[in-house]
């Protein structure tokens, strides 16, 4: 594994660069100036609590948010495509499923119950890659075997409901990988699964994207899992990036007060005490004008409520905070 090269290449020409992505639904600003970059072969975790906008970013990257549904500003550069948000359906047709693919949270709901597993795989291969019927079936079989499905031949003619949750998620990984995408989006791929199956699926996704040199954006709520599976991490709170950078550095020494609080709430075996912040995320109507975390922040200064701190480089990472934890 030539990891240092990958990191260096990522810095030179990122596969994906999001700049100031803002998304408004009605009066609610769901995403507020989100920026991040992802190099080729890198894995990135979007972490944060519900309502942080993690899945919204993934859906925007997949072109699944209609123009009538929400107002999108900012830029999402993907390889040579200048802004994903400006693509029309034809443009998306060349990208979605082919170069950018997604593994959804609930495989049972994402797979079509009316078609067999084989039918769904074959239709992707025929439509996207123009394979013939026999060739597509052969490739579908290989893909199912590749994701560790035993007796793949028989599973081709099974309907999704005949498979367990873990098997369904494997099928979805196979479909997402069918066209060897450059970017895989995995939206909480294991939150509906048991822990032993979770480990299987995360390992499967990592192995497959490494084998293909692809990049992956994981949406996760589990910080420990993010530290185990991703090179980079982006911590979001109510649609704003709080802290971003290498996952090991950030999770070992969180400097944004929110990252620190989030980490202190993680329950591990043997945790003696938890000291969570009171209350919850404010509603969009009550958001402070400045930093959205200011109302719950133990480090908050008076300016935090009125003024938004810029996401700025600080050592190995980016932080948006007027009063972060000191550098070690």
């Amino acid at each position: 594994m030539n990891a240092p090269d990958l990191v260096a290449a990522g810095d030179a020409a990122p596969l994906l660069a999001i700049e100031g992505l803002t998304l408004e639904r009605g009066r609610s600003r769901i995403l507020d100036g989100v920026s991040l970059t992802l190099g080729r072969g890198e894995t990135l975790a979007l972490v944060g609590e519900s309502g942080a906008g993690k899945s919204t970013i993934a859906f925007a990257l997949m072109g699944l948010i209609g123009k009538s549904e929400a107002k999108i500003a900012g830029r999402m550069r993907f390889d040579e495509v200048d802004d994903l948000a400006s693509l029309d359906e034809r443009g998306w047709g060349r990208l979605r499923g082919r170069r950018i693919a997604m593994v959804f949270q609930d495989a049972g709901a994402a797979l079509d119950p009316c078609y067999t597993v084989g039918g769904q795989l074959v239709s992707v291969l025929r439509r996207q890659l123009g394979l013939g019927r026999a060739k597509a079936r052969e490739r579908a079989l290989e893909l199912l075997e590749g994701v560790g499905i035993n007796d793949a031949e028989a599973r081709l003619s099974a309907y999704p409901h005949e498979l367990s949750g873990g098997m369904q998620q494997r099928v979805m990984v196979a479909i997402a990988l069918a066209c060897n995408p450059e970017l895989l989006l995995a939206d909480e791929p294991t939150s509906a699964l048991d822990v032993t199956i979770q480990a299987q699926i995360i390992r499967l996704i990592l192995t497959e994207i490494r084998a293909r040199g692809a990049s992956c954006v994981f949406v996760l709520h589990d910080l420990a899992l993010a530290s185990q599976s991703c090179d980079k991490i982006v911590v979001l709170y109510a649609g704003q990036v709080m802290e971003a950078g290498p996952s090991r550095g950030i999770l070992e020494r969180p400097r944004h007060p929110y990252t620190r609080l989030l980490k202190s709430c993680v329950l591990e075996i043997g945790t003696e005490t938890l000291d969570p912040p009171e209350g919850g995320v404010p509603s969009y109507g009550d958001m402070p004008k400045g930093c959205r975390f200011a109302t719950r922040c133990p480090n908050a200064l008076s300016r935090c409520l009125a003024e938004r701190p810029a996401l700025a480089a600080d050592g190995d990472r980016l932080i948006a905070c007027f009063n972060p934890e000191p550098r070690p």
Partner: peptide
Amino acid sequence: AGSPAGGAGV
């Protein structure tokens, strides 16, 4: 040494 920062160890 040489593994990407973050220790995505598989």
